[in-house]
Design a protein around this nucleic acid. Sequence first.
DNA 1: AGCGATGTTCGCCG
DNA 2: TCGGCGAACATCGC
Length: 261
Amino acid sequence: MPELPEVETYKRYLDGTSLNQIIISVKVIDNRVLNIDESYLRKFVIGNKFKSSIRHGKYLLVNLEQDYLIMHFGMTGDLKYYNKKGDEPKFSKVIFHFENDFNLTYTSRRMFGRIDIAESIEDFIEKKNLGPDAYKMSLEEFKGALKRRSGIAKNLLLNQSFVAGIGNIYSDEILFKTKLYPKTKIDTLDESKIHELFTNIKEVLQVGIERKGDLSNYPNHFLIPHRKKDEHCPICNTGIERNEISGRHGFYCPNCQKKSP
DNA sequence: AGCGATGTTCGCCG
DNA sequence: TCGGCGAACATCGC
């Protein structure tokens, strides 16, 4: 489920369950989710503790004593903390077993997520070429990220090198709230629209985090409950349209989100 | 039973 | 060089 609000929810879940316990063992059920050798993962993790965690974009970086365990969740990743042996969740791929006999499992159905090790946050962000975190960035950072950028608004929001954390669903929601046609060229926006876009990125993600990334029960005036065929805009009742940009399909209101800004 | 899916990456092309 | 595009990855629920 993971865009930024979901990953933030996973972070808080991990922080609330799994910190400061010695990791006794690691069970790798499917090593395709590992970017590193199994033995290398063990070497860094076993006998260590998760000290704290940081989320950058859709990545969760868990601080070991020195290094970082990096988790990315792809489209179907999740974390579960559980005790009983029989409770091992479906799609578990890597399980961290703690001294108190509880386990934290990283699950992935479609195998798009990855687990990695990094020596520092800065190295990792640089290696992945990630932009500033969409939720934590300042207006100045956002404006900095926009410098020398062109292209259409939807693609830019999805581009993790521009700003990290926004995915397909939240990009649609942000564009909807800002009343921007998804293919609006970003360099045509004036200062006040840029500011509005920034504010809406924050507000939409804030709501997402408050709702723990659960998309199933959003207020009606959001686009999220209307992301399907034959739905109507909750603001103006125009039929919601669907288009495809760079292989992702998105939804928008052709009346609220007019082509020329 | 086929289609589609909240992500990333890579190669191609303009 | 950059941006847009499409494919590839892999799996399962609807």
